[in-house]
Amino acid sequence: MATEERKSEILDKLRNAVIEYDEDSAKELAQTALDEGVDANTAIFNGLVSGMQKVGALFEKQEYFVPELLMCADALYAGLEILKPHVKQMDLGVRGSVVIGTVEGDVHDIGKNIVKMMFDVAGFTVYDLGRDVPLDKFVEEQLKTDSDLVCLSAMMTTTMVGMKKIIEDIKKKNPKVKIMIGGAPVSQDIADKWGADGYAPDATNALKDAINMISSLKKLKEDAEANKKI
């Protein structure tokens, strides 16, 4: 078993591997973490996710742009793949499932994939319908999986209009479902008008929102652990 000092060194390195979009190191360090007895959940949250938080900040400051963001995401996934089988089911009281996809007519899925990643990290069950998804498919999939959340993405003005119909259809059949819409042409105004519960106009905001969500999960986890100790 590694010392606390060694553990925090591993976590730091794991974090940096994500920030420096170093896929190979992320893989190696995830394995090192497991080998030396770092808890997989801790490695995910205090290593990978912590790195992604920094990436989000760099993106917001316009030091990083979408290419860097995508490469960091690859590094995160590389580490996650190794750690995930070792994750203990977290009792955070927010277990959930989400249906996510890019609406028909739109073949752009970068924003969608970034949001998906954060759900993956958070331990959500993600039903990814992919891109260019016929509108009915969202409604069907939500009913089939009884998911709590449906995320719709459209990158172009010419495709976002389809989201309106999906929101109406889903809310009609299942008013409790939360719906998030995302993509460059989307605005708070549109989200309100169409009855969506949340929106993110771009990757920065999607990432920020997703990070806020993950951060509150992290907080819950820490609280839960603190309680255990008492």
Binding site: V107, T159, V161, K165
Partner: peptide, 12 residues
């Protein structure tokens, strides 16, 4: 999208 009733722009 010849069969769609919605307005959809062609995609690759």
């Amino acid at each position: 999208y010849p069969h769609s009733e919605d307005l959809l722009y062609p995609t690759i």
